[in-house]
């Protein structure tokens, strides 16, 4: 069995995994992915009223991470859009092992006595078997540097995808999102859309990527991980909406592109994203 050994070894030494899903869904998950079991006490059923305090902490984690970007998730979207149909996988630490400032940031109630979630990866199954939609990846690592959580976002996503038994992942993110640097550790990301008016922020791109253990390990910053690094054909500036629209038109006409590496930071919330061409599909696109 492949095991995870992220470069930041303290993550697995300190943190404990959890999963939120209804009972019958948990049976379909691998709750010991990479040989890392999720304790029964940390398998949370959103249909149980007693789960409410933990689920509220997840909402606060979302607010602390996505709220500043203007996309906090309403409670009902958490429930209807994630907890009930799919799952939430993450890592946390016992309340007694966290700094008071960390607890303050997450607004942990004084009488709370349990696992405090520090990261979460929400994914939703799609209508295609084994393909999962990555809905939300949140990590407190940047907000609490004193906790030493570097690499927690990638670890959480890699572990979560393994728990869900995903073979392929799709996702949507903005061209200027710092999270792209995490996602691309899975390897080249095929662009399914480059300009997406269906999203609140049209400068959203939609991507898809096939998964393997080697890619998941790379995402988790495990030195055993490996991904391809294709050539760069063009750079897309996150503020160049005209180029993004042009790429979208070319995708709709059958051209194919992929993000081939880590974006470069060129200004405040401004990235240059390396993009390469893919050969056109010649056979059935059905995967």
């Amino acid at each position: 069995m492949t095991r995870l050994a992220p470069k930041n070894a303290t993550l697995l030494a300190r943190l404990r995994p959890f999963v939120v899903a209804i009972a019958e869904h948990r049976e379909a998950f691998d709750c010991a992915a990479f040989g890392l079991p999720i304790a029964v006490a940390n398998r949370i059923d959103p249909l149980c009223a007693a789960s409410a305090p933990f689920l509220e902490l997840l909402r606060r984690l979302d607010a602390a991470t996505f709220g500043p970007e203007g996309m906090p998730m309403p409670r009902w979207v958490f429930f209807d859009g994630a907890e009930l149909p799919g799952g939430i996988v993450g890592f946390g630490a016992p309340v007694s092992e966290l700094a008071p400032s960390t607890l303050t940031l997450l607004r942990v109630e004084p009488d709370f006595d349990g696992l405090v979630p520090l990261s979460m990866f929400i994914a939703i199954p799609t209508h295609e078997p084994s393909i999962w939609m990555a809905h939300n990846l949140a990590s407190m690592a940047p907000q609490v540097p004193h906790e030493g959580l570097d690499g927690l976002g990638g670890l959480t996503k890699a572990y979560g995808l393994a728990v869900y038994r995903a073979r392929r992942q799709i996702g949507a993110t903005q061209w200027n999102s710092s999270a792209l640097s995490i996602h691309v550790r899975l390897g080249p990301l095929e662009l399914l859309s480059a300009w997406t008016p269906a999203h609140s922020e049209p400068w959203t791109l939609t991507y898809g990527v096939d998964l393997s253990d080697a890619r998941l390990l790379n995402l988790a910053r495990d030195p055993a991980g490996v991904v391809d690094t294709p050539e760069v054909d063009l750079w897309v500036d996150s503020q160049d909406h005209a180029l993004q629209r042009d790429l979208q038109g070319r995708i709709e006409r059958g051209e194919r592109f992929q993000i081939v590496g880590k974006p470069e930071l060129v200004g405040h919330e401004r990235l240059r994203v390396p993009v390469g061409r893919l050969p056109p599909l010649t056979a059935s696109p059905a995967r």
Partner: peptide
């Protein structure tokens, strides 16, 4: 107070489902 954000339409329904 239950309006669905446009990103939630996309992420939670349009891409994975229908």
């Amino acid at each position: 107070g239950l309006r669905m954000p446009r990103w939630a339409f996309y992420d939670c329904v349009e891409l994975p489902g229908a």
